[in-house]
Write a protein that binds this DNA or RNA. Structure first.
Lengths: 199, 199, 199, 199
DNA sequence: GATGAATGAGTGTTCATTCAT
DNA sequence: GATGAATGAACACTCATTCAT
């Protein structure tokens, strides 16, 4: 990890805990182990660090969304209930929420959304709009296997989406992201899946 | 509204939008229309404003929880499906979330919870623990009318709780709390209630 | 002299010697004997000090120009060659150029005029336009005594004006304004006056 | 123009507009199109750029003064009133004042003279002492043609000198050196020459 | 109740300069 | 010849706070 990456890493950890404004350039540099003047060789100003993080996050989720489409298009996944479930889990958990970078970005967005229009847009898209869209697609594929009728899909997805969203806020965007919290989240997800879709 | 109350009001609006640290004593005084030295007549220091807000919030929700118990204990509400539903609505909407003071406090807690233990505790209690507890009680009372079997209650409450929580984050703790967002929230609540509990 | 006036005084001395940009707020405060934060109680920012100086200078020369008009209108000064001469001297020396505040402001304007439109306008007005105008008026009054024909006035004033301007730049806006330089200026003025207008 | 010359050229333009201290090494390099570290290959430090400019200026005026002497010594120019006039014009206009390099150096000296002894010495010499000396010599040569008596020379030169000095400050060391200003200067010079010396 | 004046510590940022490559 | 990366010192300015009035 070069200096520029180190700065972004440290900054994200601090921003996502205390908020952008409350973190000083001094704080970041102290943790990275460089002088403040050095930071300004790598970034135009403090805002530029935030912008770079947002840019990185955007390309992260772009490649993620592309990846999700590819999985959907995978012929092997058809007629396979299990795979669909795994896709959904893995989509939510591994990529958006469990990935350290994305998880911290989501926290940062939660903090900043109240006074930063760009952050709010991204926050809504990332936590509400995109997940619902993806989940809807997954369930539609699943329905093609005859698992449930088309008529029920919207309701099923809405329930599923709200349950996952609640768990996300409760376990993954709250306190530190410990293994314990991840497990608790994982356990509740599977309880829900079993209750609703197995048997 | 006297000066002390004005300070708290202005501070809350600013804190809940930009976070405690990012708001300066200067900002608050400028908006209130007093000199900074005057603020220190009314509050020991900046932290004291935050503490006073938290104290006010705590007594707010205490009286609220007492109020909820009273309603539950109201003999007229028994055997009355409709009233139970209204209680639930009114609990969520009028008190916790629609009340301007509480809504702003919840936003502040969302922002501060990541680095302030006291705020996190309050945040979890107010948005996850307490609501679930209350909702569980309401559904238990409702079940006594024979509306649904005891076995289903936990699942029903969990689904209900997650749906309301998701809607809260999506509509009431996101952007400015406009009438439009309130209406959208209200509409989705009623759609859910109808789908699940009527007929 | 209160703190605000002290700041302006010290700032002017420094600005007029090293230029506005080259003088730091630290420099000024160090000389005044206050902390930098105190300066910002009295002035909005560094530029505000400069603006206040310019404002003070403008009202200075405004009252000066009014004063000059009054002298012109003084009935006792008519038909009195000597008085006219003294008026001219006193106008140039006592007010614009010898007055410590104005002299330093002129130096500051000399320095800043090359990159500051407002300063350039003031510089041209104060050193070229206004003096010529005043001198022309004085000579016109003088001509009414029959001292010289109307036809010659323009030439006489132009010569006089250029001589005084040169002496100003050579003696009063060059190096420190010492008594020695004042005397040298004074001497050359009188040599010129004698050569041109006596006998 | 090689890099070293480019740096000096850009630096002079900036120094003469905003003053030495107010111009940063960054500013210069940005305009030249090199990195700051590169500048230190060509110059020891920032001061070295200024010193090099001063050195260049000194050799400029040295060769200029030699050139003036040569013209004086030119046998063809004797007994030729017109040529004398042209000499004077060309001395003032073409060399010292109209030449872009010298003009900018004079501006820089005007700015720096108040706090830099070396600059002040050069400023006085270049704008007051040398011109007067040269003008005196020119008029002496001219007087040898019988154009005017020796007794008047000093007065004539003083008047001429002060007029030219005033015009220099008014037109050539004020604002940007545009063609318009050059023309205005030129016109006033010729008006003066005609008024004083023709017919 | 409120304010004018002050302050030490801290804010983000720019400065001229160095040095290995 | 030129640059990428770094730095200590300085920059203008804001911070929460104090205290006499």
């Amino acid at each position: 990890m070069n200096t520029r990456e180190k700065i972004m890493d440290v900054a994200l950890h601090m921003f996502s805990e205390r908020g952008y404004e409350a973190v000083s350039v001094r704080d970041i540099c102290g943790e990275v182990g460089i002088k403040e003047s050095t930071l300004y060789y790598h970034f135009k100003n403090k805002k530029d660090i935030l912008d770079s993080l947002v840019e990185k996050f955007k390309s992260h989720i772009d490649s993620l969304l592309r990846h999700v489409d590819e999985i959907d298009a995978d012929p092997d996944s058809k007629n396979d209930e299990d795979k669909s479930l795994k896709m959904m889990d893995s989509y939510m958990m591994d990529s958006y929420l469990f990935d350290p970078f994305c998880n911290l970005m989501l926290r940062l967005m939660m903090i900043e959304q109240f006074h930063n229009e760009e952050m709010r847009t991204l926050y809504e898209k990332t936590l509400f709009t995109d997940p619902y869209e993806i989940q809807l697609n997954v369930f539609k594929k699943w329905a093609e296997t005859g698992a449930f009728s088309d008529m029920d899909i919207e309701m099923i997805v809405k329930d599923y989406h709200s349950y996952m969203t609640m768990l996300t806020f409760k376990y993954l965007l709250n306190g530190e992201l410990t293994e314990k919290r991840k497990k608790a989240y994982y356990k509740e997800v599977h309880e829900y899946m079993t209750r609703r879709f197995s048997a």
